[in-house]
Design a protein around this nucleic acid. Structure first.
Lengths: 146, 146
DNA sequence: ATAACTCGTCAATCCGCTTGTCTATTTGGA
DNA sequence: TCCAAATAGACAAGCGGATTGACGAGTTAT
């Protein structure tokens, strides 16, 4: 009956733990100047073709906030600004090698965080879980939400 | 193979959407002065026996931050402070009738957000999903995570 | 050509949270 | 029993990440 409420709590608990574990692991791998929110920026930038305005929309924040974030990531050496081929106003964002390294670290951390869960459920059941969640997942960007 | 990465993204996407939908719905039900983070406070306060310090620990923030949050919720009429029966320093927190109303609104919103998912998967599959997630869910408080 | 729009920036401000300090009270060990 | 240490909560200052607002430079549409 009240699966629904339980389900909400579970999803929230799980995502909280996931974010926490990934962040901790990425920190331990030497990227101590990155916080969870940065991951969402990396996700968009690594996809390519992003300008600051694109990033702002992806993150659901103002251009100014995105610009500040980009400035920080540039200063820390994770992101580069390139001239935009067709628009003299805009600048294309790209990850530096360090940025890619951080991305790989985060991916690995995510896999590590999920691994024990996979084991608890067993391979088959885990696959079903992923399949089910895929049906439910909204399209569009993944944003920090609160 | 890379179910793991997909799974992470799915959980994050789902929880983001969940938080967003609940917040929107609660707002529309007339509680426009509440934000997602408040829900986590309500969860602890409604359980009973909470002091500001307890709340701080539950939320994973400093006592001062919790005190500010409580002050805000008291001012807005959602929370009351009562004298603590055994400790003259402490004050017991409790929800006002308005606070309970907001809690019910959030619960209802959560159910409404989950309902379509339940429908997509079907009753049986949904139950399995909840069961699986229950196995994975960490114990302890649910906190805002980024 | 020009009006409307968009990219990125500068500036001011807001808000939630932190660190640091303090008093009142409780607790626990000599 | 007494006193030192720990705890609840309040006050104050400051920070970081976000907002709103205004602007020049460049682009697009009429």
């Amino acid at each position: 009956m009240d699966d629904a409420l339980a389900f909400s709590a579970l999803v929230l608990a799980l995502s909280g733990q996931l974010v926490q574990e990934i962040h901790t692991s990425v920190s331990q791998q030497g990227f101590q100047d990155l916080r969870p929110a940065h991951g969402f920026a990396f996700a968009r930038i690594s996809a390519g073709g992003a300008t600051t305005a694109d990033l702002a929309e992806h993150l659901g924040v103002t251009k100014q906030a995105a610009a500040q974030l980009v400035e920080e990531l540039v200063r820390k050496g994770y992101v580069e600004r390139h001239p935009h081929p067709h628009d003299a106003r805009a600048r294309l964002l790209g990850l530096t090698e360090t940025g890619w390294a951080a991305t790989r670290a985060a991916d690995q951390a995510a896999r590590a965080a999920v691994a024990p869960w996979r084991e608890v459920l067993g391979e088959a059941r885990f696959s079903e879980l992923v399949a089910d969640l895929t049906l439910l997942a909204p399209p569009g960007p993944i944003r920090p939400a609160w």
